[in-house]
Amino acid sequence: MAVKMDPIHQFELKPLVSFGHIGHQNIAFTQSALYMFLAVGLIALLTIWATKSRAVVPGRAQSLAEVFYEFIGQTVHQSAGHGSERFVPLVFSLFMFVLLLNLFGMIPYAFAVTSHIIVTFMLALVVILTVVIYGFMAHGTHFLGLFVPPGVPGWLKPLIVVIEVVSFISRPISLSVRLFANMLAGHIALKIFAGFVPALLAAGVWGILSPLPLALSVAVTALEMLVAVLQAYVFATLTSIYLSDALHPGH
């Protein structure tokens, strides 16, 4: 069979412009970077160009931008509460960026930027650094009260503090791995199921079974669309919840 069945192949970075190496690091402008800037351009188009007429009665694109803005504003307000308005641009940027990159990944032959752990980890790091830096700036050492929940008996405190610290440190890891693993697994599953179709067709009489994996591919595609949107939402919601710690550490 000449059909390429390698499900990992789709995650390879293809350099469009190479800048050589710095030590071990291969510095290149890849298709991944291109998709990132495409996403930024599309988001800017939707939120800036489509709303520039400032219509009181919005058109389709403007009302879409408004819907996204109000949705994120609501999510942030519900999760992070009072004073969270300053973080709306960050959560909005994260949500739109992840959403667009996830959805780009659903286009056949396109590349899913969020299936690379370094990308999702860096985004999660932005969130956690924001929480830590803002937390210390706004509350000073009171921010450390985050690790000491009120109403815990004295002898239990050391243990609880250790658990809280570990749980805090694991946040960027869980935040990034959740998104990365979802996108990676989804695209691998899609590729494998879709790969069965030509494989069966090439296997003579077994070809009559090929509609089965085809139907499955369609179903998995629908599921992956859902996952793409849902993971962006989960990322934004968790970001809001973590930011709520920076705003109100003494809850």
């Binding site: 291969n26 510095i27 991944s32 800037f37 800017a44 960050l90 940027s93 739109m96 860096m122």
Partner: peptide, 24 residues
């Protein structure tokens, strides 16, 4: 590939955040 991806991500996301928070 991590350094390059981080670099492009920082540029793209930084640009996005700037556009969103200052204009959009």
């Amino acid at each position: 590939t991590f350094a390059a991806q981080t670099l492009w991500l920082a540029l793209a996301f930084g640009l996005l955040y700037y556009l969103m928070s200052k204009i959009a």
